[in-house]
């Protein structure tokens, strides 16, 4: 089966700085990694290939240095990689990003499954998966913790919920986003690293993917970041001690004092 994995290169730290004028992240000088949730998507794709044969292609949209993230996927065993990179893509919100990814995927030809991480650790929106599926016109299932079976153009998956899980059946092709419970990502291999070292990453531009310029980048983004601010610190906290009984007594007393009960 042909599997496409969506990958995002993200900053490797929670202490990134913010450009106060544009309210966007300053990424210069911050080491980059593959979005950790995407690692589970890559691993699942590789496992499916091991079971069913076929090919795994990793796709990302990003600046030229995002090729490094794609090379890392090759070191893990991904067969082919495609970098969608063009100045016109810059400043894209999730909508414009999804449009770009969908156009790129259409360019790749037939596929059976698209897998992405449930969200990226920088923006945390979890929107690109579902939006891309919508633009491709294929079914979307979020938060997959297990692929039970794939056969006869259908798949059965387990979708993680707060209070258990749903078993969902879908036709293929489909797009799923996966949670960390699904697997344990493998380490790169030496042969993979050597292949990655000499790899020329295929880059596709806006023209290559037949994209409508008005739907790309900042111009094609309906959402604008108005303001970014650190949330106000939570109020005073107190940690109780003593036996469970003593602590319960203290809680009841405090709640009564503040007329909360």
């Amino acid at each position: 089966m042909n599997i496409i994995v969506l990958v995002k290169q993200v900053p490797d730290t929670s202490e990134v700085k913010i450009n106060r004028e544009t309210n966007t992240l300053i990424r210069d000088g911050v080491p980059s990694i593959i979005n950790p949730f995407d690692m589970f998507a890559i691993e699942e794709a590789l496992r499916l290939r091991e079971q069913h044969g076929g090919k795994v292609t990793a796709v990302t949209m990003g600046p030229p240095q995002a090729a490094d993230a794609l090379k890392e996927t090759v070191a893990m065993g991904v067969d082919e990689v495609v970098l969608l990179s063009d100045r016109a893509f810059a400043g894209a919100d999730t909508w414009a990003t999804s449009y770009t990814l969908a156009q790129g995927i259409k360019k790749l030809g037939a596929y059976d499954l698209v897998i992405a991480g449930k969200q990226a650790i920088d923006g945390d929106t979890a929107q690109v998966g579902p939006e891309t599926a919508d633009m491709l016109g294929i079914p979307f299932i979020a938060y997959i913790k297990k692929i039970e079976a794939i056969a006869g153009g259908k798949m059965t998956v387990e979708r993680m919920m707060d209070d258990g899980y749903d078993v969902v059946e879908s036709s293929l092709p489909a797009l799923i986003t996966v949670v960390k419970e699904i697997n344990q990502p493998r380490l790169p291999s030496l042969k993979g690293k050597m292949k990655a070292k000499n790899l020329k990453v295929t880059t596709l531009t806006a023209k290559d993917i037949n994209a409508d310029e008005n739907l790309l980048g900042l111009k094609g983004s309906p959402t604008k970041v108005v303001r970014i601010f650190p949330p106000a610190p939570r109020g005073q906290r107190e940690i109780l001690s003593g036996t469970i009984e003593q602590q319960v007594d203290q809680v009841v007393k405090k709640l009564k004092e503040q007329s909360l009960v």
């Binding site: 493998r186 380490l187 790169p188 291999s189 030496l190 042969k191 993979g192």
Partner: peptide
């Protein structure tokens, strides 16, 4: 197994 997958046995 992890070392095998990483190709360390074939160096």
């Amino acid at each position: 197994k992890a070392m095998a997958q990483a190709d360390l046995f074939g160096i």
